[in-house]
Structure formats: structure tokens, C-alpha cells
Write a protein that binds this DNA or RNA. Structure first.
Lengths: 130, 130
DNA sequence: ATACACTATGGAGTGGACTCCAGGTCAAGG
DNA sequence: CCTTGACCTGGAGTCCACTCCATAGTGTAT
């Protein structure tokens, strides 16, 4: 797959794909003899993985470390697993925080409802008066 | 309350508090005759609100709009409520996305478990062989 | 009254994560 | 071949959300 196709498939710009590869966020992508990127299925999966993780909020730093470990081979399987477990924990933490924020918003929205209610009653009364 | 106290209370630097006020992320804070900020309870609540919303990921843009509407008075109650409802929706969307990512991580972690399992068995076998 | 810690302002600087660009290379159609 | 469009690299530019700084004013304890 060309970079344009991968870009379209995952909704990530070609510039960003090259940038991700340059900083080591994905392993080096397969190339044609001419030096043009030719993404294999594996390369694509890395892109999909990184896109998913990034949009969930994992730091680039953590992902680079994961890729680095991956490239060091089987010795690092435990370390990679630990890394994923830690990131999962952080993710759950953030989800909880966000749920608390939703609850806070719910409270505020409800108070606006009540306020609107009273506002409407007031309007109703002033209509009667006229 | 002085800016230092508010900073400590909410874990937001004094610089950031001044920055938030300057860009209109919180309404203007009460001042002493000498021009020094003297946060009222209301001012503090704004800080707490903004801190909570920001760390949940609401954009500064949306929050500025909320504050702007707030400062325009009762006419904007409905608009403010709508804004909060929309932000709540976005938040839930992002929570779902993150939960999907957690699930994906779970899958990967599980596969690492199995891999480790096999690795250990292999070690066991080679121990027998020696 | 003076020392000293704290605060004010406007503006410059920083770090993260892209995004754009110039100048050159590659490859498929005519 | 040659044109044309997609792709290459290294590096500069941008945007966001702070963060830091120089200079100056405030306020309280001695």
C-alpha cells in the first residue's frame, strides 16, 4: 500500500505517517527498490494501533518506548506487557475522571432545567396578568 | 483568597490562573483597592469548574464561550445549557472510544500472557533436557 | 520608613505534535 | 523519451497551552 492509501484508510495525513515513522512511533516501513514506502499488512496494523492509542490519549513517549521494546525482540515481552498494563491503568483512571466530570455536568444541566422551568412559569404568570 | 492560596488549593500555577483570566476562561477576578487579586468563593468555584472541565478534555474554546454567555446574563441560559449538553455528549463519546481502547489493550495483554505461558513451558522443557 | 515577600503586567520563550515547503526522485501513461 | 503526478528528505513554520521573565507596584512586620 502506498502512503496515500494508508493515509486515507486510517484518516492520518501522509505527513503525520512520515513523522510517526521518523520519531519511531511505528517501526520502519517496508520500501520499494526506489525507496518509496510500501506498507505491508503489519505496517498498517502498527498505524491502526498507534492511531487508536493516540486518540485515546496515550502519550507518544509511552508508545515510542513500546515500539523500541518490540524492536529489541523476545527478551522484552514481559516489559512490553507491563507497559501495556500500566497504560491500561492510566486509561481507566482517566475514564473515571471523565465520568465524574459528566456527573458534574449533569448536575449543572439539571439546575438549568429548573431555572428554565421557573422562567417559563414566570412568563405564564405575566401572560395571565395582561 | 490570594492567588497563591488559590493556586495551592486547586493545584494550578499562579501564572496559569492569570492566563485563564486574561483569555476569558474565567470571569474577571475581584481585586483589592491596590489592584491585587482577591478571589471570592465564586471566583474559586470558577477555577474549580474550569480545572475539572479542562482536565476532562473540554476545549478552552468551548469554556470561553460558556463564560462569555454567562457574562451576558439571563438571556443566554438556554444557550449555556445547550452548550453543556453538547459537551457532555462529546465527553461520553470520548469515554466510549477510550473503553474500546482498553478492550483492545486487554486483548493484547492477554496474548502476551499466553506467550509468556509458552515461554515458561519451553524453559521447563529445556531444563528437563539438561 | 525601610526591608522583604508577594503580586501585577506585557511580552517573550517553551514543548508537544504536528504541518508545510523547497528541491529533488520515482514511475506509469502517451 | 518525456511529462506529470505522487513520493522522498531535511528543515522550517504553526498552533496550543502554558511558563518564564523583567520591571514595577503592594503590603506588612520591624
Amino acid at each position: 500500500m502506498t502512503i496515500a492509501e494508508v493515509s486515507k484508510k486510517y484518516g492520518v495525513s501522509a505527513d503525520t505517517l512520515r513523522y510517526y515513522e521518523r520519531i519511531g512511533l511505528i517501526p520502519p516501513v517496508h520500501r520499494t527498490a526506489g525507496g518509496i514506502r510500501d506498507y505491508t499488512d503489519d505496517d498498517c496494523n502498527w498505524v491502526g494501533f498507534v492511531k487508536c492509542m493516540r486518540s485515546a490519549g496515550l502519550t507518544i513517549e509511552a508508545l515510542i518506548e513500546y515500539v523500541t521494546l518490540y524492536q529489541q525482540g523476545d527478551e522484552t515481552i514481559q516489559a512490553r506487557k507491563d507497559l501495556l498494563i500500566e497504560q491500561r491503568r492510566l486509561l481507566l483512571e482517566r475514564i473515571e475522571e471523565m465520568q465524574a466530570t459528566v456527573a458534574r455536568l449533569d448536575g449543572k444541566i439539571e439546575r438549568y432545567d429548573q431555572w428554565n422551568q421557573r422562567f417559563r412559569e414566570k412568563m405564564q404568570n405575566s401572560k395571565k396578568e395582561t
